[in-house]
Design a protein around this nucleic acid. Sequence first.
RNA 1: GGAUGGGUGCCCGAGUGGUUAAAGGGGGCGGUCUGUAAAAUCGCUGGCUAACGCCUACGUUGGUUCGAAUCCAACCCCAUCCA
Length: 404
Amino acid sequence: MRDIQSTVDWLLNGVDDVVSRELLEAKLERSQRTQTPLIVKLGVDPTAPDIHLGHTVVLEKLRQFQELGHQVVFLIGDMTGRIGDPTGRSETRRQLSKEDVQKFAETYVAQAGKVLDRDRLILRYNSEWLEPLRLAELIDLMSRVTLARILERDDFHDRFSQHFPIHLHELLYPLMQAYDSVALKADVELGGTDQRFNILTARQIQEAYGQEPEVGLFMPILEGTDGVRKMSKSLGNYVGVEEPPDEIFGKVMSIPDSLMVRWYQLLLGERPETIQQRLAAHENPRDIKAELARRLVSRFWGEEWGRRAQENFDRTFRAREVPDDAPLLSWRSEWAQIGAIDLVAGLPGVPSRQEARRLLTQGAVTVDGQRVSLTDTVSLQPGSWIKVGKRRFFRVQELETESR
RNA sequence: GGAUGGGUGCCCGAGUGGUUAAAGGGGGCGGUCUGUAAAAUCGCUGGCUAACGCCUACGUUGGUUCGAAUCCAACCCCAUCCA
């Protein structure tokens, strides 16, 4: 059995901050002694069904807790999510129906299950206890926190001092989230650093209700593929866990080298020193990055796909050959003799003839290895391949059986 | 309800009567190069055209003008302040 100190060291790898290490040690120690798993909570808003690598930072940490035999609880914030987005700018939030929430939960678990052990995972909904909450109870809850404390929170504070609106119900958010921890008797709660305030409030409220406070573990925000801004779908610098293997592999290869150590640490739980040593030993950074890419693909798709993604990548970008899985186009007779623009404009992913012209002018198009220019007429045959830019390939499929 | 400032291309943002398909930046795409879809560097980035050129576009609708993103009117929307 591992001793508590090294277990804690291992659990805190990559963690931005913990409140508090001593408490975590104490809880782990007690858990070991009494053979009772800790309850580890992660709150999830039923709003963003597509999980990307940024979200998996927290999931990876949860996985580590699972590995130690603790109980992970996904708390779906169906109640908090239903009330509305704090910005209040976008019109009244669509009410989420029970079915919506249900569907969300399923997709979420399906995706999160690529990182976590689904059999050791409990799903709860905060409407279970928030819905029946009566005004008297709510008042009781509210009486345990002061306005000043709530306004300490960074974003409230900023908005208030900049005279941006704060809606009254938004003040309740931290309270409700805190109450969730009371209801679950959570021992540990994970969140991004942006969750700091909410989690600290939860600890306070738990104490007010006579419970031992939870340990707050704050995970750093993962930078996106651009290496600068946080990973988010709207910034387009994300890698989704459901993306095809080649896509994941390629996107990971495109991150700046400087980001590798961090991704290894946050996404795979590696020690930063391990990777730094390899770099210091002049191992080719490309290979280290390729390994990162392969391991991530493997995590989401399995070993076999990880290996294949790597092979395809090497073939396409290092040897510049046509990848195995280039999209197939069914042969069309007019392709026997066709103007370059017509051909390119008809390919998937080319939005307009203007774009086709641009690509041809810039020398981006190759047919069977032969560069094609704007005014060329090309002749294709079944088995031909077309390359557009560095990474778009198409293979013309042999004639389908004409009978169907 | 009142006051003020705004609504420009995928995003940010300049532009106050013609030289504006609209500066600049970001993003995207492409060429070269390379250890990678890294970095660097050069180019493209509304649509139609092989090209000349044509068409559509600056919140909406109407107007003034030879000519409007730019002026006028009404309307819609957003932000802040006062109530």
